[in-house]
């Protein structure tokens, strides 16, 4: 399965999570969540409120090369300034937020700050709005375009953002938080991966799980309409 088809599986599963959501927000470089929210609004949940950094309820006809491109603001229902977005979450009014993690641990905490490999510091960009959003949004959804034991670790060296993730998406599987165990468990395994592969590439204990459902033709049609050039595959490269 090529990278475009793989990303379609992830987008579809993200979109279906939003069927009962009140609102969703995605930030920078968030191509998969951008397409998932667009699908959810068109197919499953027309009342879903889409918060973006550049405006309230965008209605884009294309996905630009930046998910915070001011072009998106031209197709919004109302203006919204970035600072207000954080206020919305701090007030407890934000339902789903999509957060990327450079490093993700078994609790679903994120490290987007830095790691030390021996004496050597490896610097990440920082967590952007993640620290607040993970802690205050009702259902944080974490995602990452790569899956290896340096990324999915038992415990992150630095906690940039902590909260209770609703789901965690990797290019191999989907995790959910089991609150009684206090850690992530595998909910679905993407059809191109396997329990053995995930066990080998994850720094904490994992389980077998059923395959991720296929994306539907309607979903794929919207993805291809909004992203005809396949920008989304950059996430998985």
């Amino acid at each position: 399965m090529n990278l475009l088809e793989r990303s379609n599986y992830m987008i579809s599963a993200m979109a279906r999570l939003l069927k009962d959501a009140d609102s969703a927000f995605m930030g920078v470089a968030s191509f998969l969540p951008f397409l998932a929210i667009a699908i959810a609004k068109r197919l499953y949940n027309p009342d879903l409120i889409w918060y973006s950094i550049v405006g309230f309820n965008p209605n884009p006809y294309r996905m630009p090369m930046s998910t915070v491109h001011p072009l998106i603001a031209k197709y919004c229902d109302a203006k919204l300034q970035l600072a207000e977005l954080f206020d919305i979450s701090a007030r407890g009014e934000l339902d789903v937020v999509f957060l990327a993690g450079a490093q993700i641990d078994s609790r679903g905490y994120l490290n987007n700050s830095h790691v030390y490999i021996g004496e050597k510091r490896v610097q990440f960009p920082g967590g952007a709005g993640g620290a607040l959003l993970h802690a205050t949004a009702r259902r944080p959804v974490v995602w990452q375009g790569k899956h290896d034991p340096r990324i999915f670790v038992k415990e992150v060296q630095r906690i940039t953002a902590a909260g209770k993730p609703y789901r965690v998406f990797s290019p191999l599987c989907i995790f959910r938080l089991d609150e009684s165990l206090g850690r992530l468990v595998v909910e679905h395994i993407h059809p191109w991966s396997s329990y053995e592969e995930i066990r080998e590439k994850t720094g904490f204990e994992v389980n077998d799980a059923p395959p991720t459902p296929e994306p539907s033709d309607e979903e794929i049609k919207i993805i291809e309409e909004l992203d005809p050039k396949g920008i989304r595959k950059l996430v998985l490269q």
Binding site: F86, A90, R121, Q123, G126, A128, A131, L132, T160
Partner: peptide
């Protein structure tokens, strides 16, 4: 930042 020439006073945007 890695070489210690710049101090990254990391925050969250908020």
């Amino acid at each position: 930042v890695e070489e210690g020439k710049v101090k990254y006073s990391e925050n969250t945007c908020y």
